[in-house]
Write a protein that binds this DNA or RNA. Structure first.
Lengths: 106, 106
DNA sequence: TGCTTATTTAACGAATTGGTTGTATAGTAG
DNA sequence: CTACTATACAACCAATTCGTTAAATAAGCA
């Protein structure tokens, strides 16, 4: 992303922003094992269908999830599994930080 | 990050949040070639020292950058180059999306 | 010591965002 | 058709955030 101009960086930040919310990360986690309906997801993340629907719309707008209608339900699924690589990188960074903190305390 | 509880996901989201801002991404880009002072960074990203200082503090709190004092200046540098892998993953995702959009239009 | 420069911090305002509530839409069953 | 269910959407509020401005802190130098 070296040569990106301001507008491009703004777009990149939009994508990070879509992952910068615990409820959305929780939804992404819940979708690990396959597609789920909005109401099931709402139960899984302990929130309301309206709220979950809004978060899923945002995740769909950045292309991390996709939707499919089945009867009166809407099933969401992960569209780009790179999303997990992203999360793992961040988790690794956090782990590194914790390890460094432990070392410095010795 | 599969088995993370709510508190852990909140922490993960904090890290994504620190990258979810165009000015901060711009600062990270500017630091590619080595450490820079706050005022030089402010000029590079076309902002004020006060604003840049605040952004750098946030990036330091998540451990993506580190600071070093030299005289009256403070030099910042990238502390974990995984940050670029993160950005590249997001950029790749965006590129994929654009490519898919182009394909679907043919 | 006092003066200058570099950085940080505090206080403020405008804008954005997560969650709720109520309503609208769409599909299914009777 | 009506009733019911699932989802989406709009309006609203509380809380957060980005940027600015002004004041505070710290280091170097006359």
């Amino acid at each position: 992303m070296e040569g990106l101009d301001r507008a491009a960086l703004e777009q990149v930040s939009e994508y990070f922003k879509s992952l910068a919310e615990p409820t959305r990360l929780c939804l992404i986690n819940a979708l690990r094992d396959g597609e789920m309906s909005v109401s099931d997801l709402a139960e899984a993340v302990e929130s309301t269908p309206a709220n979950v629907s809004k978060h899923l719309s945002l995740l769909a707008s950045t292309g991390f999830v996709e939707r499919r209608t089945q009867g009166t339900s809407v099933l969401y699924r992960i569209a780009d599994s790179d999303i997990y690589a992203l999360c793992d990188l961040v988790c690794g960074h956090i782990a590194k930080r914790i390890a460094a903190k432990v070392m410095s305390r010795q």
